[in-house]
Amino acid sequence: MSVDRLLFPRPDTDRVSVERVPVGETCPHCASTHVARYPVANHLGPRMVVKCQDCFTHLSVTRPAPEDHWPAWRSPTRDWAPSRLG
């Protein structure tokens, strides 16, 4: 058995999803108030998006803050200053 299976076991559910938190904004494209913020992983790396859930317009794409806990596997020492030893 490899190490990644020990750290990240197979999910118990058929679908894996993230919580989409409503932000109380209005979409500039379709005027919908169904706008949510949630984490994504894309070619730029982990990001937090604010996106209309009706027309899928991106309102913002930002780097995750430490309180976002995204990505779940992020090293706790990621933001530490490097030492001379590496």
Rank of each mutant, 00 (worst) to 15 (best):
M1E: 05
S2W: 08
V3D: 14
D4W: 10
D4Y: 13
L6Q: 07
P9K: 11
P9I: 09
R10I: 02
P11Y: 12
D12V: 13
D12K: 15
D14A: 15
R15Q: 15
V16C: 06
V16S: 08
S17F: 12
E19P: 07
E19Y: 07
P22C: 11
V23H: 03
G24P: 00
G24L: 01
E25L: 06
T26Q: 05
C27H: 07
C27Q: 04
H29M: 09
H29Q: 14
C30Y: 05
T33N: 07
T33Q: 04
H34P: 00
H34L: 03
V35D: 01
V35C: 01
V35G: 01
A36R: 06
Y38I: 00
V40S: 05
V40M: 02
A41Y: 13
A41K: 10
A41W: 12
A41H: 12
N42F: 06
H43P: 04
L44S: 13
L44H: 14
G45H: 05
G45C: 06
G45Y: 02
P46K: 08
P46V: 04
R47H: 05
R47V: 01
R47Q: 07
V49F: 04
V49E: 08
K51C: 05
C52L: 00
Q53I: 06
D54N: 14
D54M: 02
C55L: 12
C55R: 13
F56E: 14
F56N: 12
T57Q: 08
T57S: 04
H58P: 02
L59W: 05
S60L: 00
T62D: 01
T62P: 00
R63E: 12
P64M: 03
P64E: 01
A65C: 13
A65L: 15
P66M: 01
P66H: 03
E67K: 08
D68Q: 08
D68C: 09
D68F: 02
D68L: 08
H69F: 05
W73Q: 10
R74Y: 02
R74L: 00
R74Q: 07
S75W: 00
S75R: 01
S75C: 13
T77A: 07
T77S: 02
T77F: 02
D79S: 14
D79I: 11
W80K: 02
W80M: 00
W80E: 00
A81T: 08
A81H: 10
A81L: 07
P82N: 11
S83C: 09
R84E: 14
R84K: 14
R84W: 09
R84P: 07
L85T: 11
L85D: 09
G86T: 02
G86V: 06
G86W: 02
G86D: 12
G86Q: 10
